[in-house]
Design a protein around this nucleic acid. Structure first.
Lengths: 219, 219
DNA sequence: TTGCCGAGTGACCGGGCGGTCATTATAATG
DNA sequence: CATTATAATGACCGCCCGGTCACTCGGCAA
């Protein structure tokens, strides 16, 4: 279902180890520089192969990038499916918490892929950019939307709240939390970047508590 | 207090109209392409001046960019000071609402400046990038922090909530709202980009209501 | 009229880019 | 072994970049 972008057969004939090495170094370069500034010369230099070889594997820079992004969306999709299955029985607020923690895990495992995505958000002239962003964001909406409806159905979320406002807030907050974890200058004073897992989970819990109970004094 | 970055005297000697024209076109170019891809050739071509002239005004690409960003931070600072003064007496939630509306107004007035900032967030190798981002984000924190403390003091925000969590949520949500207004693919399904002022204010009010009252059914 | 000086000019430089392709090396086949 | 198919190579191409600099221009003071 992912793997919609296929490289040249030459690439597929390579040993898995070499393929992984190429993907790893290419992802690193795109994560460092973004699409436009990423240099195929730099990639082949790091890999110790000739530039011509890269063109045996992929038609051009764009095809290479699309292939990498395809791998990324596959990983995202898998992660979300896992967490959805794992947390199906849980309370709505626990589900949100687990999703946030899965996001942290994903960034820990694939920081360069996440960097590529972040750069893509505001870079210009990246081929199929809006389409790629939309693909990822659709995952997020497809996850939070049903979650909220289910939470409302089960009486864990107020019936009178507009679903799209709730998903917007959850999406925005979680997104920013993950961005702050990956990029310290976006952590909004929570100093997320250096924290260990336990502290991160405490912050997540605190945020969800505030969203659940509201800012206004009760009574 | 802004205007810390000074161009060459040649630039300051130009007529205000010419200066504004140069700033306008340069901002447009940097907003379109980001720092790295922005082309001085393109800027001088649009302005109809020689490249050498640009180098009479600014030492190099970096100095030009820093000057533009300085203008930007001046505008942000002024806007925040205005809204702070204007909303001083208001209820906490009205203050938040007014800040969000001021953000909308700012983007309407200076969309290219806002674009430069958004691109800066994830672009690599921009001179003084983290410093510039920190400067803008400090404005935001300096605004929301005291606001939350004041709101708590006045009993409009629960006493037991950790301030930094509250500011994080407000900052993240407002930020994402403005990003969604400027970039339709980030609007999280609220379709903010096309909306008129009244509809935007309704969305803002709805979001603040949810944050104020919480997701959990009361009772 | 002359000399001066700041403003404005654009051809030019070195360098890096994505991409090409004729050539060589390697592996598979009979 | 020879022949053929596939993979790997890197010099090279045209392009555009940021930045330079020897030069021209125009107004003003002497």
């Amino acid at each position: 279902m992912s793997e919609m972008v296929i490289p040249k057969s030459t690439f597929l004939n390579l040993s898995e180890e070499k393929r992984r090495r190429i993907v790893r170094e290419a992802v690193r370069e795109f994560a460092d520089k973004g699409f436009q500034k990423a240099s195929l010369n730099a990639i082949v230099a790091r890999l110790g192969i000739a530039k011509g070889s890269l063109y045996q594997y992929f038609d051009n820079k764009e095809a290479l990038f699309l292939y990498l992004f395809d791998q990324f969306t596959g990983l995202v999709k898998g992660t979300l499916a896992e967490v959805a299955a794992f947390s199906r029985q849980a309370n709505f607020y626990a589900q949100i918490r687990l999703a946030a923690e899965a996001g942290i895990t994903f960034i820990d495992r694939h920081p360069d892929f996440y960097d590529i995505y972040l750069k893509l958000l505001f870079e210009q002239d990246v081929p199929h950019r809006e389409e790629l962003i939309a693909k990822v964001r659709l995952f997020s909406r497809d996850y939070f939307g049903p979650l909220c409806e289910e939470g409302r159905r089960r009486g864990q979320v107020r019936q009178d709240l507009p679903i799209e406002i709730v998903t917007f807030i959850l999406d925005a907050t979680l997104d920013r939390f993950l961005q702050g974890y990956a990029k310290s200058y976006l952590d909004g004073g929570l100093a997320l970047a250096g924290k260990d897992r336990r502290e991160l989970e405490e912050k997540i819990a605190a945020i969800i508590d505030v969203l659940r109970d509201g800012l206004l004094p009760r009574g």
